[in-house]
């Protein structure tokens, strides 16, 4: 057996939804992302980038693509940049096809940085283009802290169905979301692509105030999706809140056994089962 596999608590309901979790070159949240997808009912595999590059046709067998968090290439030059560059040159066409096939993607933290820097998000008019970025936190430092998030109630994002808001940890040094200009920001807002925002504990806007907005992100933006709502990129880590014991105050509050982050993965598996399998 391999260590870290769930031990028979929840039977996988079906193996028909298949998820690919990217690994290699400093990605480091692949184990827990795989684990979350498995708990949500997907058959999830961690696959090294080089194995995909060597045979892109293997992507055809999968429905969900996860680009997990980590420090790909040490965040050298800029976070996610070198991996974004490699994906663009080596897997650009394959990912184009993936998106055109209507399949699902989630890009978390470093993964979000990668998708933004290769221009997959926000995918205006279906085109890969760099019109937003994620850069150094205003604090100038990497920080690990829990934040409160609110979902755009009108969102059509597959991943966030029924998720009004949730607490999650952020763990990044370059998470400040910055659009190219006001026009890009307005378009993201108008088209419902800003799906997750940092808020205060009472649900009111963080309005850029630290620590509720942990990085100074413009418009408190924590996550965005493509216009169709199938590709979600976010800085906070939903895969790190799958058990109530992950929550920082679980010892003083009554929380459901299952962490709120797992719902995102459940939504994706459900959508894939209905629409993609």
């Amino acid at each position: 057996m391999t260590e870290g596999q769930p031990r028979g608590r929840r039977k996988v309901q079906t193996v028909s939804v298949r998820a690919i979790v990217l690994t290699g070159f400093g990605i480091n949240c692949d184990n827990e992302t795989q684990s979350a997808l498995k708990r949500a009912g997907a058959a999830a595999e961690r696959i090294h980038l080089n194995d995909i590059i060597d045979d892109v046709s293997r992507l055809d067998a999968y429905h969900i693509f996860a680009v997990p968090g980590g420090f790909s290439f040490g965040d050298d030059i800029a976070s996610g940049k070198i991996l974004a560059n490699r994906l663009r040159y080596k897997l650009g066409d394959a990912l184009r096809k993936w998106i055109d096939d209507g399949k699902l993607m989630i890009a978390i933290c470093n993964g979000f940085q990668v998708l933004v820097k290769m221009g997959i998000l926000p995918l205006f008019d279906g085109e890969f283009a760099r019109v937003t970025t994620l850069t150094h936190n205003d604090s100038g430092r990497f920080e690990n802290r829990w934040v409160h998030l609110k979902t755009d109630p009108a969102t059509r994002c597959v991943w966030l169905k029924g998720v009004e808001g949730l607490p999650l940890p952020v763990r990044h040094g370059e998470g400040k979301f910055v659009p190219q200009d006001d026009a890009v920001l307005r378009r993201l807002q108008a088209d419902g692509q800003v799906v997750l925002r940092y808020v205060k504990p009472d649900g009111s806007p963080a309005a850029g105030v630290f620590p509720w907005n942990p990085n100074g992100a413009i418009d408190d933006i924590a996550g965005v999706c493509d216009p169709e709502g199938r590709i979600l990129g976010l800085m906070p880590h939903p895969e790190a809140f799958v058990d109530r014991t992950n929550h920082p105050t679980w010892t003083r509050s009554a929380l459901p056994d299952e962490g709120a982050g797992l719902q995102l993965f459940r939504n994706a598996v459900e959508y894939a089962r209905t629409n993609l399998v």
Binding site: A36, E143, N144, T245, P248, T251
Partner: peptide
Amino acid sequence: RMYDHEVLAQSVLKQFQ
């Protein structure tokens, strides 16, 4: 806070409570 103390998603009691 500058250390990642939650990667691997296994944390139960953290440094600050």
